[in-house]
Design a protein around this nucleic acid. Structure first.
Lengths: 111, 111
DNA sequence: TGGTTATTCAACCATATGGTTGACGATTAT
DNA sequence: ATAATCGTCAACCATATGGTTGAATAACCA
């Protein structure tokens, strides 16, 4: 499984891991806090976090005795770009997308 | 594995299956022709096609004795939209983005 | 020092996955 | 009618995956 797409898509294929990523969207979290809402052992969550880290979907940094987990969207963007190659659906042109975002920041949507 | 995202991402996690999808981007193909470039048995390819079908990434239609495989981008779009939520950018308003694209088509950027 | 907290490691288990081969049903061609 | 082609099925195999538990390591607290 050397291809980055292999590890990224495989990592995303598990609902627990997708839930973890969603949680990390809110904020960085310690391993124990990530594990809290799940009905499975800490060791199991630790494994999931290892898989997410190897897929480079998150990064982990140990500060003191707690290891902080942080979303790293780069790998996801790579996978996303691969999917966009299937231009059957509306091409999400990245250039256009960035222009769109710039515009959104200039002109807030509530007007 | 009931969640559609489970089956879609799991299906995309295999390089053979991604290669098949890429081939189908060109044109619809019969099972035998899909299998031709791969160094594995027809039965193995048949299984991969079953997985892609269950993930609704392709559809298969039997005409005569040949079964035609056709890309079905809907499921991929669902997964793509899920991933967009993890972009480094702010939460994406897809509707707004589509309106933006429509606008861009009306008023070409080179002016 | 000793105790608690945070996290991983190692061994283990059940099931899933990706591949093989050979037989089979259905369709088409000679 | 017979043979060839298309594709799946069933049984099997090796390895991967997702989970468990208990012990181990490391850092903090009293």
């Amino acid at each position: 499984m050397s291809n980055p797409l292999d590890t990224v898509f495989a990592a995303l294929g598990d609902p627990t891991r997708r839930a973890i990523l969603t949680m990390l969207l809110e904020d960085d979290m310690a391993v124990t806090d990530v594990a809290e809402p799940f009905e499975m052992s800490l060791a199991a969550i630790s494994k999931h976090l290892g898989i997410l880290t190897r897929a480079r979907l998150i990064t982990q940094e140990k500060r003191g005795r707690v290891k902080w987990c942080k979303l790293d969207p780069d790998a996801m963007r790579t996978a996303s770009v691969w999917m966009q190659g299937f231009g059957q659906f509306e091409p999400i042109n990245l250039d256009a997308f960035e222009r769109f975002l710039a515009l959104e920041l200039e002109i807030p949507p509530e007007r």
